[in-house]
Computed example of a mutant assay.
Amino acid sequence: MVEPVGNSLVLVGMPGAGKSTVGLLLAKELVKAFVDTDILIQTREGKTLQDIVHDHGFQHLREREEEVLLECQYLNHVIATGGSVVYSERGMNHLKRSGRVVFLDVPLEELERRVQNFSSRGIACPPGQSLADVFEERRALYQRYADIVVDCGRKNQDQVVSEIIYSEGEQFADVDA
């Protein structure tokens, strides 16, 4: 088990789970900086995630993702990760040192409603896999690394944010003022 040295919140979950949206709201509420690792990858590569997958394959995207994760030193942030982050044990152990990992668990039916652009979204998965295939493959990995699991079914963004902040009876806010 990896003990955190930081006070970050690391959001993991499927594409369409709301990691970036919830992450921004959490950062605002907790007065923390916000980082989206997908944006870090895109900035580093000078391409969208979909272009990276198209030009170099899904495995290349996963490799770039791990490199970016291992370079991250965010100890008091809200970190939204890409959906494939859980394929990198080294990357996840590094993130777990930054703080607590929160799995935004969204039911497959809701993800199918939200993700209309699966084939063009830049998802790091082998050709031919469906959203349901990816969901089945990744869900156990998200649960494995999660310190907190938030059931996001039938909850709006504000409810998810509140549940994360007050999960397990402990407030994450580090407000001294």
Rank of each mutant, 00 (worst) to 15 (best):
R62H: 08
V78S: 05
D36W: 04
L49E: 10
I123L: 09
V175N: 11
N7T: 10
G128L: 10
L69C: 06
L11Y: 02
Q157G: 00
F103M: 06
Q129K: 14
E89H: 09
G91Y: 03
V161N: 05
V101F: 03
E110A: 09
E67Q: 12
N76P: 03
D105K: 11
Q116R: 10
V53Q: 03
N7D: 14
H94M: 08
L108I: 12
V85Q: 03
V85F: 02
S88N: 08
G16C: 07
R44A: 12
L75H: 13
D51A: 15
S167T: 12
G6V: 02
N7F: 01
K96Y: 02
Y74S: 15
Q50K: 11
L49M: 11
P107Q: 02
E89C: 02
Y145D: 08
E168D: 13
E65F: 01
V5D: 07
H94E: 07
K32E: 04
E168R: 11
V150M: 02
R90F: 00
K47A: 14
D176C: 12
A33F: 11
L61A: 07
A173V: 15
V2M: 11
R97L: 09
N93G: 00
D176A: 14
D55S: 10
V31I: 13
L11S: 01
E63S: 11
L30E: 00
L69W: 03
Q157N: 12
A124W: 01
P4F: 07
L104R: 04
N117V: 06
M92W: 06
V85I: 11
E63C: 04
Q73L: 09
R64H: 07
F58H: 14
R97D: 04
H54S: 15
F172P: 05
T21C: 01
E66D: 13
S130I: 12
R154I: 00
G57H: 07
V22C: 01
Q171L: 12
S167Q: 11
R154A: 11
C72E: 08
V85S: 13
A140P: 13
G82W: 00
S162D: 13
S119C: 04
E110Q: 13
R90E: 07
G18W: 00
V134P: 04
L70Q: 08
K28M: 09
G46N: 15
N156M: 06
V53G: 03
M92H: 10
Q42N: 07
A33P: 15
V68K: 03
V2T: 15
L70V: 12
Q50V: 05
F103H: 14
R144Q: 14
D174E: 14
Q159W: 00
V161D: 06
G91K: 04
E45G: 05
A27P: 05
F135A: 03
G91H: 05
G16H: 02
C152I: 01
C152G: 13
C72D: 05
R97E: 15
R100W: 01
R90K: 15
V22I: 15
D55M: 07
R62A: 03
N117R: 09
G128F: 09
V53T: 10
E168L: 12
R64P: 00
T48Q: 09
N156Y: 03
L75V: 02
L11I: 06
C125R: 13
E71L: 14
